[in-house]
Design a protein around this nucleic acid. Structure first.
Length: 330
DNA sequence: CAGTCGTGGGC
DNA sequence: TGCCCAAGACT
């Protein structure tokens, strides 16, 4: 396994070169960015992030607005809130350095079982057992293990005391490149000869997955209020969907197409002859587009007038960026 | 514990 | 094309 890893090792921005010590900050940041997010998406964002905030102290001093704006488009925005909180905790409670044990890491915001084990193993060489979706798939097939506890126990049994970090990364690389969900490339697999599912010919039956409910359809309205060259943006509530993010004003997202009754300000609203569709994890959304030209008056609460030409720097989640593009900045 | 929480890519 | 999936955490 480790011989295969050494031979096929990929260079990634957060991965230490052989023989060099890993930077715990970069390991942590990459692990959080990579939660439910692909390497291709993360790579440029990781480069930009570390150029701006290279360590815990710089990130701990960043404003919440800057952090959330920098995270825009990556999704699962609680990660960004927890990232900022974790950096502050590391500086305030740990002198700017991570604790090195899995249990202590687990107490920090945004660090769960997987990430604690990954940091302990990769950054500190602890023999922690790292189980992500890749490892779960590889181990489930290796042992034809049908339940999560069985997978966990088997993964612990094969985790080596030495090079546990390399072992974890090897298992994840194997899962993403060879032991893939649909058509595993077993003829390329270094573990083929010891794989129970390969022997039985039922690789794709593992891991055992539960049926998912169909996603409901919801409807809403986006309100584009333009005053001169600026558009009205709001700040969404700190928790919940797209929590803490800057946004275009919307009405409620409900089961039936709504009217314009929930506009953020009184104006002569025009319904555009187009809609924007966006899929979230647990529902699909279709948004009607309402636009109005208004006077540039004082705005309540967290609302601001934002220059349309620099809307790309507002840090809008993708659904709002889509809507802005559909309206065309008019 | 099952639901919540984004997004983009692959087939 | 619609569906499945991804280096999960939190409640």
């Amino acid at each position: 396994m480790l011989a295969w890893y050494d031979a096929h090792r990929r260079e990634l921005p957060w991965r230490a070169r052989p023989g060099e010590a890993a930077d715990p900050y970069r390991v942590w940041l990459s692990e959080v960015m990579l939660q439910q997010t692909t390497v291709a998406t993360v790579t440029p964002r990781f480069q930009a992030w570390t150029a701006r905030w290279p360590d815990f102290r710089s990130l701990a001093q960043a404003s919440d607005d800057d952090v959330m704006t920098a995270w825009a488009g990556l999704g699962y925005y609680a990660r960004a809130r927890n990232l900022a909180a974790c950096a502050k905790a590391v500086v305030a409670e740990h002198g700017g350095h991570f604790p090195t044990t899995e249990a202590a890491l687990r107490k920090l915001p945004g660090i769960g079982d997987y990430t604690a084990a990954a940091i302990a193993a990769i950054a500190f060489g602890e023999p922690a057992t790292v189980v992500d979706a890749n490892v779960e798939r590889v181990v489930a097939r290796l042992f034809r293990a049908a339940t999560k506890p069985a997978v966990r126990a088997a993964a612990e049994a094969i985790t080596p005391r030495d090079r546990a970090g390399d072992f974890a990364q090897a298992m994840m690389d194997l899962g993403s490149a060879i032991c893939i969900p649909r058509k595993p490339r077993c003829l390329l697999c270094p573990l083929r000869d010891v794989c129970a599912a390969f022997a039985a010919g039922d690789q794709v039956a593992f891991p055992v997955k539960t049926a998912k409910a169909r996603k409901p359809q919801r409807y809403g309205t986006i309100f584009w209020a333009q005053a001169g060259d600026a558009v009205m943006l709001v700040r969404r509530p700190p928790k919940g969907l797209l929590g803490g993010m800057r946004a275009l004003p919307t009405g409620p997202w409900v089961g039936e197409p709504p009217g314009t009754t929930d506009a953020p300000i009184a104006a002569d609203w025009t319904m555009r002859n187009a809609t924007v569709a966006h899929g979230f994890t647990h529902f699909d959304l279709q948004l009607a587009l309402a636009t109005a030209r208004v006077e540039r008056h004082a705005l309540p609460g967290d609302a601001v007038w934002w220059p349309v030409e620099s809307l790309g720097e507002a840090g809008l989640p993708t659904v709002f960026a889509k809507a802005a593009k559909a309206i065309g900045g008019a």
